[in-house]
Amino acid sequence: MSNVAKVKQKQIAQLMSKGKRFDGRELYEYREVTIEMGTIEKAEGSARVRLGKTEVLVGVKIDIGEPFADTPNDGVLTVNVELVPLASPTYEPGPPNENAIELARVVDRGIRESKAINLEKLCLEPGKKVLIVFIDIYVLNYDGNLIDASAIAALAALLNTKMAKYEVEEGKILLKPGYLPLPMLNYPIAVTFAKINGKLAIDPGLEEEQVMDSRLTITIEKDNKICAIQKGGSGYFTIEQILEVAKVAQEKASEVRKLVVKK
């Protein structure tokens, strides 16, 4: 998988053991985050997020559909990721591969488990008609740490969403004039760390991802609770490393959240 030259790999690993990083950042220094909201007028909500050179566009579409049988009173949330071939020379067209599926499911888990969207408010007719929120994540430039960038962009797009007003009268769904914001209850932020040569670094860049042993993503909700975790990569973490990273994640998440939520 790795197409970083062996020399570069060695250099990254050696720097890490001295507590330094390939791009000059501190171990727990995040890249610059820029957020643009409402970039796609046709979507009910959208946001374009840059994390260093990583770039992700998220569009939110809302449709009427049927609820799941086990949650007849709740709207439906679906998250999909497209690793668009123009985003990286290593991406190929085709149905989502396991990396795209994992990415979508980690973003989904953060939003779902923190109860970011009040799904109960998206019910039109219990058991029959509910609103479905489609979050489509489009990766435009891959330069590492897609999870954090996608989670930020998804949250920003949800906060930016304007949905049509529906009312149910005598079993018929009527479209009313005006728009409503999505009923949001929480603001989950994902923070990812890479383990390279035994050291931990936040927000790994592309080269760092290609040499990392393992990866840990911790999603923190607005009251500082943990709502989702995902370990990735073929290496391992010690208990001490996990607990340290969880603490750093809490601090970073509140910094990043300020960038998203103020807008």
């Binding site: 709502c227 391992y236 603490k247 809490q250």
Partner: peptide, 25 residues
């Protein structure tokens, strides 16, 4: 892996404080 003190899979869903998470681990 008990002999290496290595955690090779870790996931979580739900809501836990840092303290609760540590106890759960």
């Amino acid at each position: 892996m008990p002999n290496l003190n290595a955690v090779t899979l870790l996931q979580m869903d739900g809501q836990l404080t840092l303290g609760e998470f540590e106890d759960a681990v």
